[in-house]
């Protein structure tokens, strides 16, 4: 039997919109994953440190402050510096379509889920794409 998928749900940046992050953390936990939630106002350094310390398979970033074009690349960079680029990065929030494209093409986010995505879809995606 394979072990449980470990997920870090993280809120980088300064905004306090945590409804989505908390709903998703709970949904993933209910789907049988091990979920760690960072809490609000995390710096990219704190997010990466938590991900490494908790030995997670995937980081889910929730960003509603508009700073996604800065935060996703910064976190990926830090993962690389710490030889932890095997940790997959996904995210969600209010991100316009062309920037979703730019983030995915730049390799800074494996997948992005915008408002209105059903929990099941996110759960399924993670179960299919995260190897443990």
């Amino acid at each position: 039997m394979s072990r449980k998928i470990r997920v870090l749900v993280a809120k980088p940046g300064l905004d306090g919109h945590d409804r989505g992050a908390r709903v998703i953390a709970r949904g993933l936990r209910d789907a049988g994953m091990e979920v760690i939630y960072t809490g609000l106002h995390q710096t990219p350094e704190q997010v990466v440190e938590a991900a490494i310390q908790e030995d997670v398979d995937v980081i889910g970033l929730s960003i509603l402050s508009g700073a996604h074009m800065t935060l996703f690349p910064r976190i990926c960079e830090l993962l690389k510096e710490n030889n932890a680029e095997d940790i997959m990065v996904v995210g969600g929030g209010t991100i316009p379509e062309d920037e979703i494209k730019a983030l995915k093409e730049g390799g800074w986010a494996k997948e992005l889920f915008t408002p209105g995505t059903p929990l099941e879809k996110i759960v399924e995606w993670i179960q299919e794409n995260v190897r443990v």
Binding site: G13, L14, D15, H41, T43, S65, G66, A67, M69, T70, L71, R74
Partner: peptide, 18 residues
């Protein structure tokens, strides 16, 4: 903006991108 709301000046490292 978020830095103003959280009490950081625009040149604070935590304000980067926001």
């Amino acid at each position: 903006d978020m830095p103003t709301i959280m009490g950081y000046d625009s040149d604070h490292p935590r304000a980067l991108g926001e």
